[in-house]
């Protein structure tokens, strides 16, 4: 067991973890952040995407011990109380989710994408989301949502 200190969604956690434990399992099973989910075992689906120190990572591809001393933001940490993050709002407005399983990862990746490139073209959005699979929406409305969020200034500092 290894002791780690991780800040998750603004709260400091000190925990003992097995060295082999994946960050996503740490978040779900130990911290209780079940909003972040697992969709595959080959780092292909992106359902587990969170932010590590503000950059998106696939939390199934990071060990919990690697997050020691770092800050993790999950889908549960981006709204401001009842006020949705502009990306969450955009997903709702554009019907960019159906079953919602890919959605946490998709939203976290979309935010990261706009942080990198606040005004992406459709093609840039599509390539920026390439690591996140959705089986329900055909991506059409997800692309629209990211465009709406870009218009609302996400990535340009106006995300909230």
């Amino acid at each position: 067991m290894t002791r780690i200190n991780v800040k998750v969604d603004g709260v400091d956690h000190t925990d003992e973890v097995e060295p082999r434990m994946l960050l996503v399992h740490y978040l779900r099973e130990q911290v209780g952040r079940t909003g972040t989910v697992v969709g595959c075992d080959t780092s292909n689906c992106g359902a587990c995407t969170v932010h590590l120190d503000g950059r998106s990572v696939k939390s199934c591809n990071v060990l919990a011990v690697q997050a020691d001393g770092h800050e993790v933001t999950t889908i549960e940490g981006i709204a401001d109380g009842d006020r949705l993050h502009a990306m969450q709002q955009a997903f709702h407005d554009c019907h960019a989710l159906q079953c919602g399983y890919c959605t946490p990862g998709m939203i976290m990746q979309s935010i990261d994408l706009l942080n990198d490139n606040p005004n992406p073209s459709e093609d840039e959005i599509r390539h920026g989301l390439e690591g996140n699979l959705c089986r329900c929406t055909g991506y059409h409305n997800i692309v629209k949502a990211v465009q709406q969020a870009a218009g609302a200034g996400v990535g340009g500092g106006g995300g909230r």
Binding site: R33, T34, G35, I75, E76, L84, L97, G100, Y101, I107
Partner: peptide, 19 residues
């Protein structure tokens, strides 16, 4: 209509069986 069921899903307040 925008969907009623979205709110939980976009904020991670979900009830997947594995949770």
């Amino acid at each position: 209509r925008k969907r009623k069921e979205d709110r939980r899903l976009i904020t991670g307040r979900t009830r997947w069986t594995d949770n």
